[in-house]
Amino acid sequence: METILAATVAIFFAVSIYLILSKHIIRILLGVAIFSNAVNLTIFTAGRVVREVPPIIPVELDTPDRLTANPLPQALILTAIVISFSIFAFLLVLAFRAYQELGTDDTDGMRVAEPEGEDLPPLGY
């Protein structure tokens, strides 16, 4: 199963990186969304996988009585999902605002911070 998941992760990463390399801000955003899924799957796979047994202790016991899925990566990913969603929402709004202010979705046209042919900084003290 890990082998298949590794291949899946590879494809997720390849697709997201291909999208991120684009010049269009919407495609970049889509890429970022997929990228976070790929990262989560990576963490998940690195913790090894077990089919269908959630890490929950039965009511009558103090410790799990059989092999369960690894709880640690799950705990890490759970918060990561929420945070990556927040960041994704932030990026989305940022992109939207940038589009409103600059009138373009092409990253080559977004040059407010680093204008082309910028003058030398002041040489005085």
Binding site: P54, I56, L78, T79, I81, V82
Partner: peptide, 12 residues
């Protein structure tokens, strides 16, 4: 705390 669920999921 005992079954699947929790603050993150509930909040979402």
């Amino acid at each position: 705390h005992n079954e699947p669920g929790g603050g993150f999921i509930g909040g979402l």
